[in-house]
Design a protein around this nucleic acid. Structure first.
Lengths: 219, 219
DNA sequence: TTATGGTAGACTGTCGACAATCGACTATTG
DNA sequence: CAATAGTCGATTGTCGACAGTCTACCATAA
């Protein structure tokens, strides 16, 4: 059953602000002041400050001492050249280490996410779809026995999503995205690690490439 | 001349604790309580809490709600399979984007670090050498026009260093490390980006490969 | 003895208030 | 008029105190 865990105000506020940033409700360069946020959400400034610190280290906001904070802006080359390759590596590694540990519960989680995607499509709720998409990949990363993988992923992933959340592009292709995730789960079920690693890479690239993919990597 | 910037207590304390963790003064699983740290360094718990949050997001400590924090432990596979590839990618990318922007000041910074390394060797000060090593690579990452590169690097790099700082191995080969950095700077001076990218990769790999790995750990 | 429930101490989570800093505006002065 | 010094409001940096939570220990009862 559910774990009924206690969630600190800091984490709740961070999740809420992250959601607003990723949904575009808080656009890049939007100014954030601690007192205003504290008043708006009914928490103390200490909580707000810790929240802002988290979001800053995750690159969603930038703050300068004694001046204030604002929602970060993000460049396309940063995403394609810096963040995406790192994200791919993390998820590939997580899959390599974690896939042998996938059990019935894991696949049940995947299925729940797929259902959530279906419902999101049915309600035309792009935000809910993105949320489900994030949970899908979080399952992969969390399955990795190296705990810190999730932490690194958390510090990479939001900026990528932020970049594409502000594009309208994905709207129409939601059904294809769903199918793509379905295929991924099927590959996972075969237990073929190498195939899964390849699949997740092309999945991430295609999912995050605005309709003509031409990014290459070094090494 | 120097910039005489104001540094918050949070940042100073973070630097100090990071130093102690990397030097082994605070070994893995060492328990950290907020009040003790606040008393020890003469700051308030709020400062300590923000500091701990930074160090936690950088993976140097782990904290569980209402229970406390302790210095993180780190496994060899996490370093070699997860962290090192990411670090290599970041520094390669930073080099690719930032090397064309290297100017006289940049190389002067490199030279200062090399001098610091010489002095560290002369004084047999391993900690100072490691500090200089970190500054060397920070110059590279900071030269990258994408600001967030440094942030990601900061969230990756300390754990790598932590892993090897706890090994004694590097002691004898300090001179070789110095020469290796010298060679790197020479490659940078040629302006050959591809050669530099290749050089930084092998440098990082060799520098972080324990001559023949015969240490293994739990987790 | 063992299991249950409760109590105490230590610690983290949260809060409101005070101090330091910044940027813009204003006044003063040559 | 231009340049400089001073002031003010807004915002962040820092602090000490209170409230909530966990763990270990102890008492009590079957």
């Amino acid at each position: 059953m559910g774990k009924l865990e206690r969630i600190s105000m800091k984490d709740r506020l961070a999740a809420e602000l992250r959601r607003k940033v990723l949904s575009g409700a808080l656009p890049p360069h939007f100014r954030l002041t601690e007192q205003d946020l504290a008043d708006e959400y009914g928490v103390s400034r200490a909580v707000v400050r810790e929240t802002m610190l988290v979001l800053e280290l995750q690159g969603l906001i930038v703050s300068t001492p004694y001046k204030g904070s604002e929602v970060a802006s993000i460049s396309r080359t940063e995403v394609s050249e810096l963040l995406l390759p790192i994200r791919i590596h993390i998820e590939q590694y997580a899959l390599k280490e974690g896939m042998p540990l996938f059990d019935a519960d894991t696949f049940e989680s995947f299925e729940r996410v797929l259902v959530a995607m279906e419902q999101a499509i049915h309600h035309q709720d792009i935000e809910a779809f993105n949320e489900a998409d994030m949970r899908f990949h979080a399952i992969i990363v969390d399955a990795c026995p190296i705990d810190s993988a999730r932490g690194i992923w958390d510090s990479i992933h939001p900026r990528i999503r932020m970049h594409f959340a502000l594009q309208t592009g994905r709207t129409g292709a939601l059904v294809e995205f769903l199918e793509d995730h379905r295929r991924l789960v099927e590959v996972f079920r075969t237990g073929d690690v190498l195939a899964s690693i390849a699949a997740i890479k092309s999945h991430i690239i295609e999912t995050n490439t605005p309709h003509l993919g031409l990014l290459d990597e070094t090494h």
